[in-house]
Structures are given as structure tokens and as C-alpha cells.
Design a protein around this nucleic acid. Structure first.
Lengths: 226, 226
DNA sequence: GACAGCATGTAATGAGTTACATGATTAA
DNA sequence: TTAATCATGTAACTCATTACATGCTGTC
């Protein structure tokens, strides 16, 4: 273990992983990111220009200046040490998922604003999720016809994409439900336990039960499993 | 519009919203956060001590030092101006959701590591989702029996919780699927388009179609809707 | 009377975003 | 030739996290 206690920020591994697939220029990264990285590890574009330099400084990547037309651009590639560091990181436990959902925040405080505010927020969320669909459809179509840019990685990409399809569908379905509920409200404040709310809570209780059961099963060593 | 161009970071509104419900000390915020805010707007504890001070500086909250036992603690409360700023923000369009999912990142680069690494990551994700269930169950039980700490807000809290239940179920189901797939793989690299992968892609295509249709419907003004 | 952990903060560090800057290429 | 937009970067600033610090409270 000659690698110094790595502990880079996750963003570094995200870029390093990209470089493991093939060399990229920073701009190419900004483009490819839309198809993959952007889904699971959102970053500003400037990171995609900065981070590779850091990796070079650490000896995990190399930079080669190339002539592109009349201008020069920098193409980054992973080093052997970079591959080792990436592999080490992959053997490490993942940090839990974190979801930043402003729309949910707005729901939580909706009684401080108007019903229209809340409806707008819910609809914006659905619109955002729906807006991913056409591009996703094009990507999937591409995979099915020509295999896309990394055909040998399709088994991974497919599981990846499946998760985000599930997620977008969830957002749309939830927004449909929420819109229907909210539309039936006379206002946003002080409704409390309506009949409909009670029904929803009871359904949630029923669905939570089996999850909680599985949770305790797995935390106790269990007496089954001969 | 006497309020100066607000544009606070979302975190500020998150805290401000808490204060809109009732006054809290910073420590109380750290506790309550686990039940609500933590789901949609994750932050480090130190933020919950810092942010209220900023709000006070802006005139959006007040700080009152109280004796708690022999020690003093600071209780923060929202001001009228704070309520206005919060209401203005609620009328503003929400930024799109952002999901940081390290586990998905690891999936994306799984061909750079071992199959075991990938399985561990998938299982950790499921375990994390399952681990939320018992607390969620307790919360829902509380809502059904005594209404919880804010019974007049149950209609909001329920829609909120429903989303996260959906999400946790999704994570568990996806992890189950992924584990089954990966277990059937001989290795993580260079499998490409297996039969199973093709089947998944075709199902995804079918499910994406209606979403894409809805997306185009809603972006065009539409000729229906008399 | 000491140890664990609850309650309350602060400071330093480091990461990531917004905003700016500018050369090249293409279309009108 | 101008305008637009592609391609490439940099710098300043702000935010948020990690790590530390410390008084208080109950319990053994």
C-alpha cells in the first residue's frame, strides 16, 4: 500500500473514473457528463476543468497539450497509480445517498405560502422529470441499435439507467398524486388529519411494515440460513 | 418590495422555514431535523448553529438567551420580515432535485473493480434504505395515534412522507434487481449486451415512451383543452 | 467523584459555485 | 463583418464540512 491515505473528495473519484474509460479533454467531459455522471454526481462545469489538474498534481493522471485546429487543448489520461487508487476506492463502502429536493422543502413549509405556490412547485418537479424522458429515450434507442459509445459496458450502463428511469417515473407519479390531493384542498394551512390524509397514512403504515421487518431481519444474525 | 434582493442560499430558507413553525434552540433543530429537514435538505449539524445567527444578522430572526438549568441557551424565533421573505421565496420556482448517489457512481465504474466490491455497494445501499424503515414506521404510528408534534400540518407531512416511502421502496427494489443481475455475472468487465441486458433495455424503452409523449404534450401548447 | 454522553458552540480548512474572460469557428 | 455559439479556461467568493473545545448532568 504505497498510495498515501487517499481520501480524496468523491468528485475526484468521479473524474478519475471517467479517465479510466478513455482519455478526455475537459470540454469532452462536460459533454459526456450529461449522459452519465450528471445523473449521480452533479457538479458545475468549472469542476471538470479544475479537477483533472489536481489529479495530475497527485500523479493520478497525465495532461497532454494537443493542437486542436489552430488552438491547443489539454487531454487528460489516467496513470497506473490512478487506476490503483480508483480500484482501492471501489473496495470502500459507499457513503449514503443524499437527495437535495427543494420542492419537498417547499411542500414542508407550504402553509406559509399560497396554494398556487405549492401547485407550481409540484408541477415544476413533474415537468423537470418528464423533460429528461426524450433524451433518455434517445440514449436507450442508441444502445439498442449501435450499442452506444461503450458497448462493452452496456451491462453496467443498463442497470444504471434503470435506476434513473425508476426514479423519474416515481417523481411523475408522486407529482400526479400530490397535485390531485392539493387541488382538493381549500387552502394549505391547518387542514390536519383529513379523511384522505388518514387513508394515505394507513397505506404508508402497511407498506412500511415489511420494510421494517426486513431491516430487523438483516441486522440480527438470524436463526434461519442453515 | 422593500426586502433587499433576497437570494439567500436554500439552506437559509430551510432554517427560516423551521423557525416559521415555532421557535427553536439550535440543539432542538438538530433533533427535529432528523424527522423532516434531513430528508430533503441534508446538512451538517454545525450549519444548524451557524445559520440562525446569519438570519438574525439579516433581521429575519431574533435570538433570545434563556436560562436552561444553570446554563444559558439561545432560542431563535422568526420575525415578521422573516415571514415575508419566506413567503416570497415560496412563490419562486424550485431548483431541480439533485441526487448524490455514490453507489451509482460505483456501479458506473464497476468494471474497474471486483464483482464483490459492486455487490457490497449495492447491498449497502439497500441496507441503508431498509434502516430508515423502523423510524419511519414509528413516525407514522405517532401521526395516526396522537397526531405528532404538528397535528395541524399532517396533510403536508403525509404527502412529504409518502414521497420518501416511495423512494426507499424504490431503492430496495432496485437493489434486489441489481443484486440478482450482478450475481449472475461471471465478472464485471466487458459483458456488454447480454440477453438479460437487452431485455432490460427493451423494457426501459417501452416505459420511456409514454413519459416522452407526456413531455412533448406539455411543452407544446396543445390543440385539445378547449 | 469520575466517567459517559448530552447540549452548545467555534475555527480552520477545503471544496464548489458564480461570474468573468477570451480565442476559435460557423452562419447570416 | 458581425453575431452567435463553441471551446477553454481562471479567480474570487461563499458555503459547508470536519474537527475541536467545553460546560453541564446524571449515574455508578
Amino acid at each position: 500500500m504505497t498510495t498515501p491515505p487517499p481520501s480524496l473528495p468523491t468528485t475526484s473519484y468521479a473524474i478519475l473514473g471517467m479517465l479510466a474509460l478513455r482519455p478526455w479533454s475537459a470540454y469532452e467531459l462536460t459533454q459526456q457528463t450529461r449522459r452519465s455522471l450528471g445523473y449521480c454526481w452533479p457538479t458545475a462545469e468549472s469542476v471538470l476543468y479544475h479537477e483533472p489538474k489536481r489529479l495530475v498534481g497527485l500523479g493520478l493522471a497525465t495532461a497532454k497539450r494537443q493542437a486542436a485546429g489552430r488552438r491547443t487543448r489539454t487531454v487528460y489520461a489516467i496513470t497506473e497509480q490512478g487506476r490503483r487508487v480508483l480500484a482501492d476506492w471501489l473496495a470502500t463502502p459507499p457513503s449514503p445517498p443524499g437527495l437535495e429536493a427543494e420542492a419537498m422543502l417547499r411542500l414542508l413549509y407550504a402553509d406559509q405560502g399560497s396554494r398556487q405556490d405549492l401547485l407550481d412547485s409540484v408541477r415544476a418537479t413533474r415537468a423537470w422529470a418528464l423533460a429528461r424522458a426524450p433524451e433518455g429515450l434517445a440514449q436507450v434507442r442508441g444502445y439498442l441499435t449501435d450499442g452506444g459509445p461503450f458497448p462493452e459496458r452496456l451491462h453496467l450502463i443498463t442497470l444504471f439507467g434503470r435506476f434513473y428511469l425508476d426514479l423519474f417515473e416515481l417523481l411523475v407519479r408522486w407529482a400526479d398524486l400530490a397535485e390531485a390531493e392539493i387541488t382538493a384542498w381549500p387552502r394549505t394551512a391547518d387542514l390536519g388529519m383529513t379523511d384522505r390524509t388518514r387513508a394515505l397514512l394507513e397505506e404508508m403504515f402497511t407498506r412500511l411494515q415489511p420494510l421494517a421487518d426486513r431491516a430487523t431481519e438483516q441486522s440480527t444474525p438470524g436463526s434461519g440460513e442453515a
